[in-house]
Nucleic acid binder design. Structure first.
Lengths: 155, 155
DNA sequence: CCTCCTGGGTTCGTGCAATGAACTGTGCTC
DNA sequence: GAGCACAGTTCATTGCACGAACCCAGGAGG
């Protein structure tokens, strides 16, 4: 039995790091809304139902982290305000959200119907998330993956 | 400006649902450990540094949710105990973890070196996560995806 | 000019939930 | 039959999330 875990340094694990940034309860939901086109404070609040204080804090953190940026805008006949938009760094969280969504679609939807389908804008076919290696092979699951520690020369 | 968000029903969004199951601080880290081969309470605790009470609660929740299962085992010269193993449902969270890891690798590793590399066990090439559609096209990002609500017929 | 309204927050009191330390309990070894 | 190791539970404390209330800036309306 291979206990891969032994030689690995998880003090600076990327999973833990990422969760430290976006792992709080509302963060990924805020980002989901952002992907759906939401930009304004009140809309985030209405769609998520999060308390204003928490939402304000999360938006601030996400801006600090460079995942969202504040952009000034001016609605007609209103004073200038600012909205929140995804940066490239934020946009790169898309696969994470898709992965969460796909899992929920499979295991949580009662009637087996996914609430939201993702279609390829060009051809209309459903979008999937796949594990592939650089040699082009498609991987079926974790069993076909070998984790290799980089930092320490372990095992 | 397309506000996609308007017609969508997020009360039963799969992202929110999944986060409800594994979105707590330690849950995904427990699952990460499980993928790395950790099975026993004390090892989870040592590797994660989580308080025992929380860890006990999380493990229980994950078992309840069918993500882990308790399996009896008997170490030589010790009394029977049980360990925690991933179910298929849990194993299907692998893409989620990989997505989190890849993002962290890109944006959080200081020296640009990922702490952990995933290799295809068969050929040794690095493993990536890709968005593809069923027609076989590779998608570069969220801009090439069109979200379509299933439940409500929203304009 | 004065007031209301609306968007975008901040402040505050409460309560639950996370934390770490201490305790329990069981079966094996000595 | 004492001690030990593993696998938890219990408990007191701390912190953070929550919801309600309040604040502020600028237009609109009178």
């Amino acid at each position: 039995m291979t206990v891969i875990a032994a030689g690995l340094d998880r003090s600076r694990c990327s999973v833990a790091g990422t969760l430290g940034v976006v792992g709080e309860k509302w963060s990924l939901l805020v980002i989901r809304e952002a992907f759906l086109g939401v930009r304004r404070f009140a809309d985030f609040q209405a769609n998520l139902g999060a308390p204003k204080a928490v939402l304000s804090d999360r938006l601030g953190t996400l801006v600090e982290q460079g995942i969202l940026r504040r952009v000034p805008y001016q609605a007609e006949g209103a004073r200038q305000r600012h909205e929140y938009r995804l940066t490239d760094k934020g946009r790169d969280l898309y696969p994470t959200l898709v992965a969460l969504m796909k899992w929920g679609d499979r295991y949580l939807s009662e009637d087996g119907i996914a609430p939201l389908e993702l279609q390829h804008a060009d051809c209309g076919a459903p979008v999937e998330l796949e594990l592939v290696c650089e040699a082009g092979h498609r991987l079926a699951g974790p069993r076909e993956v070998r984790p290799v520690s980089r930092a320490a020369a372990a095992g």
